[in-house]
Write a protein that binds this DNA or RNA. Structure first.
Lengths: 291, 291
DNA sequence: TGGGATTTGTTCGTATGTATG
DNA sequence: ACATACATACGAACAAATCCC
């Protein structure tokens, strides 16, 4: 007979996963930061398979986001951080914790337990309007871009870049060029400095594969679970002009976005995602397994 | 010498991708449905690498969603269908094309060019309230679930399941149990039959790896690009009770979700994503390549 | 600081299985 | 039945990164 069972690597992968979850493989070690799997050589003899087959199984688990291998170090169990819920609409919201220390681009409501939002210094650049950005902002003039890294409880949370017409800075809102934050929030500052009121916005949401910079910041890998959300918010003034564009990138594996419309109960507004269990979605009734 | 360059498989992968995009490899054939790559054996001799190394490169391209290999047939270029823009909020929207033929769970605005929404028969089930669904609907009674496949211009577009308390059907809205659609839309029907008005909703958005059923329906593979959006809409009545839960799954590689809030120009409401180029997002200023 | 041991990464060769045409 | 083409599996060697004494 050729081999013990067909799809040996898959059986091995599933067994490894089972043993990880049962705590058998890779037990928690008080001192170690990450749970480590036995070296490939050990798995080789344990399963009586060749190293290549073991690697096939590990590669599968890595692709699925369960483990990560690092040359010279070993293979480690991936611990995904807890889910963060972010509400991006619902005018009734007050300024939630953090939106003041950020730039007030979005109003946030977070599940209780999360508290401290910190931000990197703002990286300010003046750019010639990209074709793409021009389409959103309906201008081809130069733009100010303000880029910031956001942290929640000290952990990477989002990457955010806002674009404004350069006009704004030369016509009164000079602090848009300052790398220091705008503590009262950019929205409030623009109203005060230019009389610009934000009366509405449009959000576009996509999910995509992270680029290298995003992978590094969020600690994402190559697995299918390691996608990012990209939200593009266009803010409008009363005259219908778009005057701000904010692009935010969020790690999709630990982020839920929330929108409200019309009359919604208070507790839902304030604590989206609260008291909802982790990862078991209301599932579709799994239509027949048609082969 | 051991080998020409290190990371041979990656060089090969990138070269293959370049040649695919230039149309050199896998030219379009009028008769063939899909562009096909040369067999591994040919690539082996072309690149002077072993078959395993070629497979390493192809595996990488497959993981990234550029190609798909099928046993006995060959390796094919993946053509991703055009992007579909869907607006999920903005009360000013009329019933856009398709929302009538669907169940009116969502109001859609689509980019011009897309027209015809078709739907599968509704699969109706009565379930004991899952723990999870109960959390959303705040009931532990039995639920009606209505599941449907949605097609746009004949192509798989979304999977949608709505949940209602079983009460509704026994107290007047009996058509909720009918596998035929509810042409005027479930929202209108419930208002008419039960006096239930929908005054607000809450949406929760996640991105995740598709399950087997979703992979089959949308034609997704194992690549990181093959994620799905899952939106969970909770609809509220004037008394603050949640009375409907709709779970919709969208293929993330070809779907953009849109939300509006406040005053937004008409053209943005009606044609989200229109006249915006394909895939070049307004990019963050790529912070230093920190090692 | 150095050098050997450990561990994963890359590449090759080869053989056989399975699906397709 | 046969050829083609991808899938799985084994064995082996060396490279590269890290760890440890």
């Amino acid at each position: 007979m050729a081999r013990r069972t067909p799809l040996r690597w898959r059986d091995i992968a599933e067994d490894i996963l089972r043993r990880i979850e049962s705590g058998d493989l890779a037990p928690r070690d008080g001192s170690a930061v990450r749970r480590r799997l036995p070296p490939e050589k050990d798995l080789e003899s344990y399963y009586g398979a060749s190293r290549n087959t073991i690697r096939e199984a590990l590669s599968y688990l890595q692709q699925r986001g369960h483990v990560i291998s690092e040359q010279g170090k070993g293979t480690f169990v991936v611990d995904r951080p807890g889910t963060v819920h972010v509400t991006l609409s619902g005018a009734e919201l007050g300024l939630a914790p953090g939106s003041g220390s950020g730039e007030g681009y979005h109003r946030f409501a977070l599940v209780p337990g999360h508290r401290e939002v910190t931000v990197s210094p703002v990286k300010v650049e003046v750019q010639v309007g990209t074709e793409v950005i021009g389409r959103y902002l309906q201008t081809d003039a130069e733009l100010i871009s303000r880029h910031q890294e956001l942290f929640l409880d000290g952990r990477p949370w989002a990457l955010q870049t806002s674009f404004y017409p350069l006009d704004f800075a030369t016509k009164g809102a000079s602090r848009l060029l300052s790398p220091r934050g705008i503590p009262e929030g950019a929205v409030a500052y623009l109203r005060e400095a230019l009389g610009y009121t934000e009366v509405g916005f449009h959000d576009e949401i996509k999910a995509r594969v992270p680029d290298e910079n995003e992978k590094r910041f969020f600690g994402l890998g190559e697995s299918a679970a390691d996608a990012v959300f990209e939200t593009v918010r266009t803010a409008y003034a009363p005259d219908g002009r778009a005057f701000r564009l904010t692009v935010t990138v969020w790690p999709a594996d630990r982020t839920r976005l929330h929108y409200n419309d019309g009359q919604v109960p208070d507790d839902v507004l304030k604590a989206p995602g609260a008291e909802r269990p982790g990862d078991t979605p209301p599932e579709s009734p799994s239509p027949g397994r048609g082969s």
